[in-house]
Simulated scan of single mutants.
Amino acid sequence: MTYQMTFKRYELKYMINRQQKENMLQSMEAYMKLDQYKRTTIRNIYFDTETYRLARHSLEKPTYKEKLRVRSYCPASEDTPVFVELKKKYKHVVYKRRLVCPEAEVMNCLCNGNPLPDHSQIGNELRYFWEYYKTLHPTVFLSYEREAYYALDGSDFRVTFDENILYREDDLSLGSDFYGTSILEQGQTLMEIKTSGGIPLWMSEALTRNHLYKISFSKYGTAYQQMKGGIQYA
């Protein structure tokens, strides 16, 4: 299977309720379609330093920030292909670089401080990131259920709805069950617009009708705040 390894796009986030989600789905019906995976469960393991340097920096809303995670779209066994993702944000633009490797190989390397056996440009970037932060280790397991919609016009415009966003600090395995502490209130959904260009007029009108406004929100950052007793989002 061929995977997209690099991304450059804007990611706009909105916190919506059930009625607003229903309204948005109705507005999207003529322009977008649910992808072939329907509703999927995404599992992530985030890596950070002993002082949570990456999480704390992200919450400061800097011009530039970055994070490292391992992601799986199904319960992963040792041979399951998983994604090692280096995600950066600079001046509102998100850059994502990733590799695909077997779960056992990835976790063995990252948990033991060894470089991944990949000497591509992306592999070198991951290696530099690892060496720069020095004390990276698994800190949080974060999972959620996602519905992803793609544009019927063939553009890269996408909309995702994430629900049941859960985190935990133990049992950090991509093959584990789906459980943890919620970072959303009852009935909330995190909607994300992902695009390398502008927002279509019909979508702008739908956002206005539903009084939806972009927010700053980080799943990992919010989990960190809850772990340390902070607020959820701003």
Results as ranks from 00 to 15, higher is better:
6 T>I: 15
7 F>A: 08
8 K>W: 03
8 K>F: 10
10 Y>V: 11
13 K>Q: 10
15 M>I: 14
15 M>R: 01
19 Q>M: 14
19 Q>K: 14
19 Q>E: 15
20 Q>R: 13
21 K>M: 15
29 E>Y: 04
29 E>R: 12
30 A>K: 15
31 Y>W: 13
31 Y>H: 15
33 K>D: 14
33 K>W: 10
34 L>E: 03
37 Y>C: 13
37 Y>M: 13
39 R>I: 15
40 T>N: 10
43 R>F: 08
44 N>S: 12
44 N>P: 11
44 N>E: 00
45 I>K: 04
48 D>G: 05
48 D>H: 06
49 T>K: 00
52 Y>E: 01
54 L>S: 03
55 A>M: 00
55 A>N: 04
56 R>F: 04
57 H>W: 08
58 S>Q: 04
58 S>W: 02
59 L>R: 02
61 K>I: 14
62 P>C: 07
62 P>W: 06
65 K>H: 07
66 E>V: 05
68 L>P: 07
69 R>S: 06
70 V>H: 01
70 V>Q: 02
71 R>V: 13
72 S>K: 00
72 S>A: 15
74 C>K: 10
76 A>E: 01
76 A>R: 01
76 A>F: 06
79 D>G: 09
81 P>F: 02
82 V>F: 05
85 E>D: 00
86 L>M: 11
87 K>P: 08
87 K>D: 01
90 Y>H: 12
92 H>L: 13
92 H>F: 12
96 K>T: 14
97 R>M: 10
98 R>K: 15
101 C>Y: 09
104 A>Y: 03
104 A>C: 03
109 C>L: 05
110 L>E: 06
110 L>A: 04
110 L>Y: 00
115 P>Y: 01
118 D>V: 15
120 S>V: 11
121 Q>P: 10
123 G>Y: 03
125 E>A: 15
126 L>M: 15
127 R>D: 13
128 Y>S: 12
129 F>A: 02
130 W>E: 05
131 E>M: 14
133 Y>N: 12
135 T>M: 05
137 H>Y: 13
139 T>A: 03
142 L>A: 04
145 E>T: 14
148 A>L: 14
148 A>S: 13
148 A>C: 14
150 Y>D: 01
151 A>K: 07
151 A>Q: 02
153 D>T: 11
154 G>I: 06
156 D>F: 10
159 V>H: 05
160 T>W: 07
161 F>C: 08
162 D>V: 13
165 I>R: 03
170 D>Y: 10
170 D>M: 10
171 D>P: 07
173 S>G: 06
175 G>P: 08
175 G>I: 08
175 G>W: 04
176 S>M: 06
180 G>Q: 04
183 I>R: 01
185 E>W: 06
195 T>C: 04
197 G>F: 09
197 G>E: 04
199 I>M: 03
201 L>F: 11
201 L>Q: 11
202 W>G: 05
202 W>R: 05
204 S>F: 01
204 S>P: 02
205 E>I: 08
205 E>R: 07
206 A>M: 09
206 A>N: 05
206 A>Q: 07
213 Y>W: 09
220 Y>G: 00
222 T>C: 07
223 A>G: 03
224 Y>D: 08
225 Q>S: 14
226 Q>K: 09
227 M>N: 01
227 M>E: 03
228 K>I: 15
229 G>N: 05
231 I>F: 11
231 I>R: 01
232 Q>Y: 11
233 Y>N: 09
